[in-house]
């Protein structure tokens, strides 16, 4: 029995909507997959202490209250973050931070590490350590007192990993403290408040 004209039109519309929907889903899936792949590749990359900006610098989100950029956070076994215990200086001076690592599952061995960029030095606290026997739900805090010797951005990174066979596995978290330079806008590593850009400085510096 031949379809009625309305049925044909409805079928065609349904097919078109379905096709468009499928296309959208594919596109979203592709984008998400690319981001995940990128995240994964960043997460698996060996930590590079000489380039603390490496992971997701372009994805920085800044908390205006603490001047802390949350750069990257992986939802792995260990969740880590930074809390500011004192005012984080926009320019120079001393400040205290607390790195927090929370375990979502038992972790027999966990490593934490503070990575400091040039011009930030430790006044008190350990920059790295190993913690054994972390239970699920445990919250471990690691305080450090730092001093910024010069205008920033001061790249202070807290990382926590689950260790397996002496090697870090999976999780890492990255944070940056600064007061000004919006990395998301593609700015270079201009020290905070420097009246001139590095390009201008380079052009005119006579050594």
């Amino acid at each position: 029995m031949p379809k009625r004209k309305q049925d044909i039109l409805r079928d065609r519309r349904s097919a078109a909507i379905a096709a468009l929907g499928a296309l959208m889903i594919l596109a979203i899936a592709w984008i998400v997959a690319m981001q995940d792949l990128h995240s994964l590749s960043q997460s698996l990359a060996a930590p590079d202490p000489t380039d603390p900006l490496h992971p997701r610098w372009d994805a920085a989100k800044r908390d205006p209250a603490t001047a802390i950029h949350k750069i990257h956070k992986t939802e792995g076994v260990i969740l880590s973050e930074i809390e500011a215990l004192t005012d984080v200086p926009r320019v120079t001076g001393a400040f205290k931070l607390k790195g927090v690592a929370r375990a979502r599952a038992p972790v027999s061995e966990m490593r934490y590490s503070w990575i400091l960029s040039e011009n930030v030095r430790v006044r008190a606290g350990e920059t790295q350590g190993l913690v054994a026997g972390v239970k699920a739900g445990d919250r471990r805090e690691f305080e450090i007192e730092l001093e910024a010797l010069a205008p920033g951005p001061h790249r202070v990174i807290f990382r926590a990993w689950r260790m397996k066979g002496g090697e870090p596995v999976g999780n890492s978290a990255h944070y940056v403290i600064d007061g000004e330079t919006p990395a998301a806008q593609g700015a270079a590593r201009v020290p905070i408040g420097s009246p001139r850009s590095p390009e201008d400085m380079r052009k005119n510096a006579v050594q």
Partner: peptide
């Protein structure tokens, strides 16, 4: 500043440097 390398202002690396800024 004690402990500070002005190379940071040039966007440079870890090598220590002193300089005069022309202009």
């Amino acid at each position: 500043t004690a402990g500070f390398n002005p190379n940071a202002y040039l966007g440079g690396g870890a090598g220590g440097v002193s300089f005069f800024l022309k202009g």
